[in-house]
Design a protein around this nucleic acid. Structure first.
Lengths: 112, 112
DNA sequence: TTCGGACTTGCAGAAATCTTCATCTGTTCC
DNA sequence: GGAACAGATGAAGATTTCTGCAAGTCCGAA
């Protein structure tokens, strides 16, 4: 194997392993959005958001295109939503009640 | 939020973001196994494997128990299998053909 | 009760990741 | 052309993660 498969998988999961990147993906589940919007919802510096978006782009998880003065981002595949959903289920199973996070989790629809 | 939910999610994904840890989880999908077996299949030093197992344990993704002289590990929830499967699907969608990994991916049942 | 196998833990240097600052490109509007 | 907004990129210091080695614990057999 040139780049072992399990290493590619690990890289993909590591790509998701950042709070800002997770939030971006959750926001993009509802459809393409301009960086502008993401920035308004995520409380992070513009340059930092750009860095995180670049990570997601390099991994092929999101795609971007320009729409006039704005740059739009979108999930490259809707399968990402499944991954996030599966993650949510595991979190529910794993957090018996650490810090009351479980309660939050249960009351959440698909964002957060 | 004490520990924001999206941060807990990010931590969970980051926990999966390591080749050895991915391999461990894939092996555990078929049922509990002793460290001994994992070590025989994963080509990593014993102490390194132990470290990675500790990471998975701390995250609550696997559990361990002693069976005589051996220590057994198991997935803490079968939902983990869903997560790995979702990851595999995304990899398939994302790797149009980088390094021919796509071919490997297609010929794989559930391990690798 | 001592030996060897099966793991785990502590630790330190090496490597990767994060965050922020400064700078740079592209677009719209005047 | 020039100002102002929307983003991206490069680089550096701080932090985190990884790896391997040395040492330690626990168990079964002799």
């Amino acid at each position: 194997m040139s780049v072992p498969l399990y290493q590619a998988k690990a890289e993909m999961f590591r790509t998701l392993g950042h709070p800002v990147r997770i939030r971006v993906l959750e926001l993009l589940q509802d459809g393409p959005r301009p960086v502008r919007d993401l920035l308004a919802e995520i409380d992070v510096e513009a340059s930092n958001l750009s860095q995180q978006l670049a990570v997601l782009r390099r991994a092929g998880i999101v795609t971007s295109f320009r729409d006039g003065a704005l740059v739009m981002y979108a999930l490259s595949t809707p399968d990402v939503a499944d991954l996030l959903a599966a993650g949510r289920r595991i979190l529910g199973a794993v957090l018996t009640d650490r810090d009351g996070l479980l309660v939050e989790l249960r009351s959440q629809k698909s964002s957060g």
